[in-house]
Design a binder for these strands. Structure first.
Length: 480
RNA sequence: CGGGGCGUAGCGCAGUCUGGUAGCGCGCUUCGUUCGGGUCGAAGAGGUCGUGGGUUCAAAUCCCGCCGCCCCGACCA
């Protein structure tokens, strides 16, 4: 098994990313600046992400619902920090039906406010709690600069919104959903994310605190891949949500929100891609196995296609997502490269020789070159392919984990921290600094605290910046 | 908004300095050839040269205005 991570080092990573998302047929340029056209192949990848998450949401008792795209401007203003955090990037409708609106409508940048407005009506008693709602939706944030999937003007996501009878329950929910995200990222997307808490400076506008999963991309930059917020009673108070508890006393519920977006598609591309293009983990790959028939003439063609049909049935019966590349006019070599660029985890080649020998050529995307290709018997192909996909899934997680760990370094002083983030990588340091200190470090190095990891040593050290005694480990890195 | 760059065929670009018939590569169409790692050849289709004005016998090219996009910074899932 190849353990070494393969990253696109022969090219500039940013350029590589921008080219590959178009070449791999994930998305297209939009006539509107910063908006993304998601093409069928990219959308199927997003649907795989959706499926993996939705299954987990249902398993934890959450239900889907849908709330309006437009939010009255006054709703956002009810929570002071919230509106302050979002106002610079709002798109606002001021004219509708040919007339100036009495009150402008904000195109949702996130839905806490409009959902809390409903929660106010839905919650009367402790018996109505916990209220566990999720919404799949599009939101709009007018960002200065955009990149396909990673930061777009409009993006698709899910946003969970829950209300609880106690602070402890809300905290448990916040943590539970972060764990759901991490479970998906690690086990489905094969991205070994680091779980942690955001600093005051980096937390969500209006939250008491924010948990995050941070992923390392192929160029060692960090990508915040999902967040879970404990909102305390901030929004409940702002929206006057009240319930009577068992003692017949009026209380404000404690709420949470958590979101994961189409950014995850970008994360998968950037965490696994190599010089040849995308590499998709089998669990989220729209096509897990592509079958390339090879023939020169009509006689070979009929024999090969007959075998393809037989194998196809076996693979479909095993619930393996396959695609047969029946295009004519393209050479087999062209097709191999084409599907490798699109990240299909495994490829099955079948030609006249295979028909004769009852074999197929089985190639795996996670291992480059000839070592990744072998001739195997057609007997029991479904089981063999299933095993291979399982192995690829595990290997890709392993490769990404080795890469991540090789690029996280301990720093004991500020110079070391600077050197690490300059060279590329994350610096793991003792931290007791202020938000202002974080600001200065960002100015000087471009790096921010990605998170305060849950995984803490439990001892004490000296803060990398202030030199004071510190009890907390922080991860610094440059981010997308 | 500050600094830099670019708008010419679906995509990527040359041509602009030095004005004179609109070009190249990829892709696309047709035919043939090839087909176990990005075949090769032939013939085609496709352009208001971002936009408005000016100079000139003549403007993609020179002059003035406007618009749009990209990159670097501040913001951010």
């Amino acid at each position: 098994m190849a353990q070494q991570a393969v990253t696109p080092q022969s090219v500039d990573f940013s350029k590589w990313y921008n080219e590959i998302v178009y070449k791999a047929d994930l998305c297209d340029l939009s006539p509107v600046r910063g908006c993304l056209i998601i093409k069928p192949y990219g959308y199927e990848l997003w649907e795989a992400v959706k499926g993996g998450l939705d299954r987990r949401f249902k398993a934890t008792g959450h239900q889907n619902a849908y709330f309006p795209l437009f939010i009255p401007e006054s709703f956002l203003k009810r929570e002071a920090e919230h509106v302050e955090g979002f106002s610079p990037e709002l798109a606002v409708v001021t004219i509708a039906g040919g007339e100036k609106l009495e009150e402008p409508l904000v195109v949702r940048p996130t839905s806490e406010t409009i959902i809390m407005d409903s929660f106010k009506n839905w919650i009367q008693s402790y018996r109505d709690l916990p209220l566990l709602i999720n919404q799949w939706a599009n939101v709009v944030r007018w960002e200065m600069r955009t990149r396909p999937f990673l930061r777009t003007t409009e993006f698709l996501w899910q946003e969970g919104h829950t209300a609880h009878a106690t602070a402890e329950e809300a905290e448990a929910e916040t943590m539970q959903m972060l764990n759901v995200y991490a479970d998906f990222a690690i086990n489905d997307a094969a991205i070994p994310v680091v779980k942690g808490r955001k600093t005051e400076r980096e937390k969500f506008a209006g939250a008491v605190h924010t948990y995050t999963i941070e992923a390392m991309m192929g160029d060692t930059k960090a990508l915040q891949s999902g967040t879970s917020h404990n909102l305390g009673q901030n929004f409940a108070k702002a929206f006057d949500i009240k319930f009577l508890d068992q003692n017949n006393e009026t209380q404000h519920p404690w709420t949470t929100s958590w979101g994961l977006s189409t950014r995850m598609v970008g994360a998968i591309v950037m965490a696994h891609g190599d010089d040849k293009g995308l590499r998709l983990p089998p669990k989220v790959a729209p096509i897990q196995v592509v079958i390339v028939p090879i023939f020169k003439n009509d006689d070979e063609r009929s024999k090969v296609l007959e075998a393809v049909e037989r194998l196809t049935k076996e693979l479909l019966a095993a619930n393996i997502r396959i695609h047969v590349d029946k295009r004519e006019g393209q050479s087999p070599g062209f097709k191999f490269n084409d599907w490798e660029m699109r990240g299909v985890p495994a490829r099955l080649e079948i030609g006249p020789k295979d028909v004769q020998n009852s074999t197929v050529a089985l190639a795996r995307r996670d291992v480059p070159g000839k070592e990744g290709k072998q001739f195997v018997s057609q007997d029991g192909i479904a089981a063999r392919v299933q095993d291979l996909l399982t192995e690829i899934q595990a290997n890709m997680l392993q490769q990404a984990t080795v890469f991540r760990d090789a690029n996280i370094h301990d720093a004991t002083n500020y110079d070391e921290l600077k050197a690490i983030v300059e060279k590329g990588g994350w610096a793991r340091v003792w931290w007791a600094g202020s938000g202002q200190d974080e600001g200065k470090i960002k100015e000087e190095t471009g790096a921010t605290i990605r998170c305060l990891p849950f995984d803490q040593p439990g001892s004490k050290g000296k803060c990398v910046y202030t030199g004071q005694s510190a009890e907390t480990i922080a991860l610094f890195g440059k981010a997308y």
